[in-house]
Design a protein around this nucleic acid. Structure first.
Lengths: 339, 339
DNA sequence: CCTCCTTGTGGAATCGATTACACGACTTCG
DNA sequence: CGAAGTCGTGTAATCGATTCCACAAGGAGG
């Protein structure tokens, strides 16, 4: 592969001049410029990003560590992140943690070793020493979707409280009184918050959330299946199950189906995170939709702000309820929204 | 961030010795080794991958350019690619082309600039000059899923011919005679092949595939919707629609639903590419399943073979038919398989 | 006509690693 | 006891870019 030296030789100038042309530095004569450009063209020269990064200490690259690529929510997030980053002149390297802290650490380490300019993380746990060290060392970082309490890093996320209240109102209006939740891992903020929001909303209707109605999931389909089976085995099973993410809702649907039961007649179902497929499931699933694209874009902008020396604030965008048929027929369905 | 010089100073040795310890070169005394290791620990030193890559001309990184991250098929492919690559000591940088040749070129260029060790591509078109130049220049490359005819690059893909035959047999057995297809872009091999396989299979039953029954899609949901509407507007609409990928099937389902029609009673539906959600749609969708994980792993192994100087062969794995209910009730359903 | 800028250019240092080569200190063996 | 290895280490070149500094040429101004 041709290097800057080859170009310099071909154009009959020094490497310094070639570099100046490439970075359009003002003090280059028109003549030298055309000769260099011609040489670049002739040799098909492309600057070596590795060498450039070493010298300038900038990679123009962002790291994105997400909890699970197979989750359509995170896929969409990743896509919007890459799009916005590209618009701002950055590339993105994605690390998939698969909800495993060890894999998360692997990717964070890898990205730091590559000297990415900044890191976007949706932490799967309370924060490994590695990540905390990186924050302390001043690595530009932004949390997206989930965060780690007590760490001075901007957070870009959706607030589901109002939407969860709307959901509970919807369920209550349909006559449901025994409501259960499939929670996410307690180590994640989204795991905890969604349970808290649900409990608060129930309280407003004088309803309780007994421990038996809180199933411990891990944001994966299999746990949704397992927890739902537990619910169905209860002496008094719930009338509704609210899954804290879309994959666990899928698992719940499986479990209900496997027993020959029907949604919503035998068990109603709602989910956090709306995805295109929920329109086509049998029945279509009522869900709380996050403004995923906006979150991704806001997160990138915040991170780039940090990289360029500004001090971005956290961003919280509202989620909204999308009513479908999985909780029972609504005589005259209304699309509820909090925005 | 601490550099190798800091470590050398801290340990009281030269940078050469530090480097030797880090790359466990044999000729280092036990004493020097422990001192270096202690210094590394004390400083929290991590080698700069950028500098290392510049010197060694190896990045231990693979590029993966896929056609559409939002397509669950490619998401799963990306995941298995990353997994296998990690097992072999490589990282992966993913570029999402969104079925756009210009974006594909952007990512290929970006990845080449970063001096990735090898490139995995699922081309969205017939091959830009950029990609062809890269091949000619000797960049290790492997095509996955789709390929570019006439280019000397190993291909890792699934063969759907037998499965399409099984599908047509299944449809014929259910009494369907007017079969239509939503094709992918003609510029992609998968776009062409699936139509050809479908036509051949129909021929075996004495059925034709009239032009009116070949809809031109682009592997995106919206095109599936549009094409299906066209089919339904025909004086003699088809009885079955076979979508060449899962997103177009989703669009087709939308279109049917929007007219108040039902699957499979009014229009039967089948898709290429099986995904977990197809179990839960209404009705569950009959699909041709690719061994996606195996494809991803085989592609990585082939690419690493090329990088390490061997000459890997192309790999073709069989796809298989998974019968569900979207084509009509089968009196006694059998899972057909070609393997 | 001499100084002082301005402009364009090249030489060389630098980023942080790897590695060829030289060298000193020991061992070993004839 | 001297020659020939072996072993561990350091010096310095190198990868491909960017950029500071020096300098030459030419124009402007006193």
């Amino acid at each position: 592969m041709a290097s800057i030296k080859d170009v310099a030789a071909e154009a009959g100038v020094s490497v310094a001049t070639v570099s100046r042309v490439l970075n359009d530095h003002p003090s280059v004569s028109a003549d030298a410029r055309t000769r260099v450009l011609a040489a670049v063209e002739a040799l098909g020269y492309r600057p070596n990003a590795v060498a450039r990064s070493l010298r300038t200490d900038q990679t123009h690259t962002l790291g994105l560590v997400i909890s699970d690529v197979l989750n359509p929510y995170f896929t969409e997030l990743a896509r919007s992140v890459e799009e916005e980053a590209r618009a701002l002149g950055y590339s993105v390297i994605i690390g998939n943690a698969d909800e495993r802290p060890d894999l998360q650490d692997h990717h964070v380490r890898n990205l730091l070793d590559r000297r990415i300019d900044g890191l976007l993380v949706s932490p799967t746990d309370g924060g490994s020493p590695l990540m905390l060290d990186a924050v302390r060392a001043g690595t530009p970082m932004v949390f997206v979707d989930r965060w780690i309490p007590g760490v001075a890093v901007p957070v870009v996320r959706a607030d589901g409280q109002a939407a969860v209240r709307d959901l509970v109102a919807h369920l209550h209006g349909l006559g449901h009184r025994r409501l259960a939740i499939i929670a996410g891992p307690a180590a994640t903020t989204t795991g905890q918050e969604r349970v808290a929001a649900f409990r608060d909303a129930l309280e407003a209707y004088g309803l309780e959330l007994p421990d038996a109605y809180i199933g411990q999931g891990d944001f994966q389909a299999e746990s949704g299946r397992r927890v739902t089976e537990g619910f169905l085995d209860l002496p008094e099973p719930p009338e509704v199950v609210f899954a804290a993410d879309n994959l666990m809702a899928l698992g719940a649907l499986d479990a209900v189906r496997a027993r020959g039961l029907r949604v919503p007649e035998d068990l109603a179902l709602a989910a956090f995170d709306d995805i295109p497929w929920f329109v086509h499931t049998d029945p279509p699933i009522t869900a709380i939709a996050q403004p995923t694209g906006d979150l991704g874009r806001a997160a990138v902008r915040a991170l780039v702000d940090r990289i360029e020396g500004r001090r971005p604030a956290s961003v919280t965008l509202p989620a909204r309820l999308v009513v479908r048929r999985s909780c029972g027929e609504n005589p005259n369905p209304v699309q509820r929204s909090t925005s």
